[in-house]
Design a protein around this nucleic acid. Structure first.
Lengths: 209, 209
DNA sequence: TCGTGAGTTTACCAAATGGTAAAAAAGCAA
DNA sequence: TTGCTTTTTTACCATTTGGTAAACTCACGA
């Protein structure tokens, strides 16, 4: 049986396979993050990747597999900052550091942020299982941690779930709504700096016991 | 010249025209807000509206006109709460009331919120002019107002632009990322109540002089 | 009731799109 | 070089999609 590059059986990935799969995923990220799943075409991805459409389908079984692959890889990166919330650290500093990391990710990986936003906006049809199995347990765990900090009086009384959602929404806003932000504040560098200062102030005041 | 229902010349809209144009727009809102512009099809809109595709094209010149019409109508509704920020009111109460109105709109009109989010996510290709001509002047004006409140010491020192963006992002999050919110907190009613309380606390603390 | 224009349907079409078959080319071990 | 596998290209295809032409139906005033 000729291996088509899928994952039914495992073989050595071959240097050229790794390289081209990477090119496809990079191009797909560019395209999907801008137009959403249904708004993106294999031709666009092929053009962006500098490969032919059938060539792309030699590496991936179809459009959906490319999209799902991207989302799966993304989830790890995306949850990483929250996973690093340290129970043994200083609560205030941990949460502010988390906010900083999240904002930094929005600046560094805006396409990833938009890819995720697109998927959630459309009801998370292809990533719902991962939300249940990956995101939810982690959030539950960290909510417990934050609640302990609250109970111990080390930070002000807040709803942990909604605190986390506030951090997500405010930080991701700068990536997901970039087109709008740019209209209101065209100086990109200054905008990011002001955003960082603003969020630092806001969450510090919120959490001050 | 037979009027096709477009707007090249003005005639009396005829009761049935008004009714059916409304049906189309209602259906288009449902579809566009879920799949984005390119992900939505005229057939979907036609099915949802209970009309045939050519019938829809009797009332609108094409897919794009429907979308643009929706976005234009939306802009007014969307900016309305901000426009009502009253210079003569109490600063803290005005801003908290604005936040409440915004959250209420996310709950009442989630589809409109998602339609807007979709458009911005994709770089605002069809609404960019309106952002410049409609949103920007209003935001600039209200930023001046907030800055005056800050200068007068009536609220804490904040960056007005980023305050507004914080209010937008946190309130709209509950509509735009509903699929994710539901995973973390399945009890919808409780979620909205907790959101209201959380945002009230957060912005009150932020703005307390 | 008849005519006229508004509204609706049926039958299409050209382009775009996801995907496939198979031949051709490029690597590569012997 | 030879023979085999991996990779890439060329030529397609079926379906979907936005849109149109023209026939048809319906409401309603004269």
């Amino acid at each position: 049986m000729a291996e088509t590059g899928s994952d039914t059986t495992k073989r050595k990935p071959s240097r050229i396979q790794q390289k081209n799969r990477k090119r496809v995923l990079e191009a797909a990220l560019e395209v999907f993050s801008q137009h959403g799943y249904r708004g993106s075409t294999l031709d666009q991805i092929a053009d962006t990747a500098g490969l032919s459409k059938p060539n792309i389908l030699y590496y991936f079984s179809g459009k959906e597999e490319i999209h799902v692959t991207l989302l799966n890889r993304l989830m790890e990166t995306w949850l990483d900052p929250l996973a690093h919330l340290d129970p043994s650290g200083d609560p205030m500093e941990e949460l502010l550091a988390y906010t900083r990391r999240k904002l930094e990710m929005s600046r560094t990986y805006p396409r990833e942020s938009r890819l995720f936003a697109n998927e959630i906006l459309q009801g998370a049809p292809r990533i719902a299982p991962h939300l249940e199995s990956g995101l939810k347990p982690l959030v539950d765990e960290k909510c417990d941690l934050i609640q302990q900090w609250v109970d111990a009086g080390r930070i002000a009384a807040v709803n942990p779930r909604h605190l986390i959602m506030s951090i997500w929404s405010t930080t991701q806003h700068y990536a997901d709504f970039e087109a709008q932000v740019r209209v209101l504040e065209p100086e990109t560098d200054a905008s990011w700096r002001a955003a960082g200062a603003h969020l630092e102030t806001m969450f510090r005041k919120l959490l001050q016991p």
